[in-house]
Amino acid sequence: MRERVWKIAAGVVLALAIVALLLSIARLLWGRSCTTHARVRAEVAWMGSKILAYRCDTGVFPESLQALTRDDLPLGPYAKQAQLSDSWGRPFYYQVSEPQQRFAFYSLGYDGLPGGKDQDADIVYEGSLAPLPSQEWLERGQPVQAVDCSAYKLTQAEVSELTRLNAEWKRAEAARASAADASGSCRRGTGHKEPAQQASGPAK
């Protein structure tokens, strides 16, 4: 009887060990892409909101995603260069139609190809159009779609204050960069003598 109990217990332990091993393998095979896919969905949502913020602040959509990185705008930059690509390392896709006041913004998913299902499905910003050929995209949808800027609407005083704070931050960043360059120059120059000045006149 005791031997039978031990055999059953050993069988249960072995079964649990096999299940744990299978779960570990599944996490190794699919865990990374699932995590990345969720992260890209968050990136698409965040970047889409920055495109709308740019539109509401300036009155026009950015002509390209690169425009979001400009620091000469009162409330810019809206994004960093590294944020123009998804977590798979591929650039986001962006199209804009100013006359129709709409845009398309999306990532092509895990496989990097249009369409697909599950992890390979395109990740499209809510409210923008799914990836289509350019001409078909321009012809689809209503002629004019209003952009809701209520979430980004600021009073003139708030705009002035944000502009001032942004300008101060940029000046501080420039000062830190300048100080770092100067410090690097000093370190590079340590232990080196200035070359002797060459005589400009004829030797006497």
Rank of each mutant, 00 (worst) to 15 (best):
M1N: 03
E3A: 05
R4N: 09
W6H: 04
W6Q: 02
K7M: 12
A10I: 06
L16F: 04
L16M: 13
A17N: 08
L21I: 10
L22F: 13
L23H: 11
R27W: 10
R27V: 02
L28H: 10
R39D: 08
R39Q: 15
V40W: 05
A45I: 07
W46M: 12
S49R: 14
K50C: 09
Y54P: 06
D57Q: 05
F61Q: 01
F61A: 02
F61E: 02
L68M: 00
T69E: 01
D72A: 01
L73K: 02
A82E: 02
F92P: 01
S97V: 01
F103T: 00
G109I: 00
D111Q: 13
G112C: 11
L113A: 15
L113I: 13
L113F: 10
L113G: 10
D118C: 05
Q119C: 07
A121P: 12
G127Q: 04
A130F: 09
P131D: 07
L132R: 14
Q135S: 13
W137A: 09
L138C: 11
E139L: 12
R140H: 12
Q142F: 07
P143W: 06
V147T: 11
V147R: 03
A151H: 12
L154H: 14
Q156S: 15
A157N: 07
V159H: 14
A167R: 14
W169F: 11
W169Y: 12
K170A: 07
A174W: 04
A175T: 14
A175G: 13
A177I: 04
A179K: 15
A179R: 11
A179W: 12
G184T: 04
G184F: 04
C186W: 04
K193P: 02
E194T: 03
P195H: 03
A199R: 07
S200H: 06
